[in-house]
């Protein structure tokens, strides 16, 4: 485990003018993985990335790179390259010169530079663009130049700060696949920042969910989706029903006025908790067969499924189902014990 680790953030905290924006961050990044920092705007993703890149110093804590403390090493001495949020391509240079910048700084021989730049431009599908000016490129093309400019230096880690943020949906999807393929091909560790949960889930090996400068959960996309650790993660990743509940004893929980079997334990008797149920995990039945009942109050067609809001007096439940029940119908609902997620209430900070 330790040997496989390339970057290790140890108890990183960062303050700006006395305001904590990162609070005791601990994170290790494995070699060659695609790790995504995911969280709402202002949660500290960019700050974390800038600390890894060396553009900010943490107020407390250490950055370990391959076992060595690099907290005070300036960016230009780190084997890490960054693709900036706004690309930050050099406007006075053409595509070739932009990509060759890092290699020129290293004073590599001319023919090697031109070979590696061409190779890289082929990788990002921009062969023939060498002489083009940056201003003449589309957003997607600029994006690729930025990626090529970073990758050509063969960094051990590539940092990407919302690199697809400025692209339209279709191009975004294409670039997601392309980036993922590129990462597999070159075998470089990617640390990727996004606030788009779908993007995070489709591209990553590991997702780090952050909120207000604190890591909420680290896990594989499947873990994060299926086993959200708290109500924040559940709400942020995909859609969820989150209702108040009470834990009676291990494996027994009460919500919606009924008592249910569940798979969670380790809570205090009578502890107030959050219950999270995904809309697709609620099964529609007849009122008699349901564990609890409610009345359909709205129906929306969503393409592959219907989204229904069902009220049972205590709460509104969102259900995704291929079966449609018209507004006003009383229905029953069932949910399997393993799909009931019991979570500690998060204290409001």
């Amino acid at each position: 485990m330790e040997k496989n680790c390339i970057i290790d953030l140890k108890s990183i905290s960062k303050e700006y003018d006395g305001v904590k924006v990162l609070d005791n961050l601990n994170l290790y990044v494995r070699k060659n993985e695609f790790l995504t920092l995911l969280g709402p705007s202002g949660c500290g993703k960019t700050t974390t990335l800038r600390i890894i890149g060396g553009f900010e110093q943490p107020t407390e804590g250490k950055v370990i790179f391959e076992g060595k403390d690099i907290t005070n090493v300036p960016p230009y001495k780190r084997q890490i390259n960054t693709v900036f949020q706004k690309y930050a391509l050099f406007p006075h240079m053409n595509v070739f010169e932009n990509v060759a910048f890092g290699l020129n700084i290293k004073r590599l021989p001319k023919d090697e530079i031109s070979r590696r730049v061409s190779e890289m431009l082929r990788l990002v599908n921009l062969q023939g663009f060498e002489k083009r000016s940056i201003q003449s490129l589309s957003g997607g093309q600029q994006q690729r130049v930025a990626i090529a400019r970073a990758l050509v230096n063969e960094p051990k880690v590539l940092l990407l700060d919302e690199p697809l943020g400025a692209l339209d949906l279709k191009l975004r999807k294409e670039m997601q696949t392309e980036l993922k393929n590129m990462q597999k091909r070159v075998g470089i560790t990617f640390i990727y920042v996004t606030h788009d949960q779908e993007e995070a889930l489709t591209m990553s090996d590991t997702v780090v969910v952050m909120d207000k400068g604190v890591i909420q959960q680290i896990g594989t996309p499947v873990d994060i989706y299926n086993e959200p650790k708290n109500a924040f993660v559940a709400r942020f990743i995909g859609e969820s029903n989150i209702v108040d509940g009470i834990m009676h004893e291990d494996f027994v929980v009460e919500f919606a006025g009924k008592v249910f079997k569940c798979v969670d334990k380790g809570f205090a008797k009578g502890e107030k908790i959050d219950v999270v149920i995904r809309p697709e995990d609620l099964e529609i039945t007849t009122p008699e067969e349901g564990q609890f009942t409610g009345v359909v109050s709205s129906v929306t067609f969503k393409g592959v499924h219907y989204e229904m809001i069902v009220s049972n007096g205590k709460a509104d439940w969102k259900i995704h189902s291929t079966i449609m029940k018209p507004v006003g119908t009383e229905i029953g609902m069932r949910v399997a014990p393993e799909n009931i997620h019991v979570m500690k209430k998060v204290k409001e900070r």
């Binding site: 890149g53 230009y76 900036f84 949020q85 050099f90 700084i105 290293k106 970073a150």
Partner: peptide, 18 residues
């Protein structure tokens, strides 16, 4: 001059003089 240009040059290995 956008500060991110200077940061990306630094990121690509350029020292202050470069």
């Amino acid at each position: 001059i956008d500060n991110s240009l200077i940061e990306s040059a630094e990121d690509l290995g350029a020292n202050k003089f470069q």
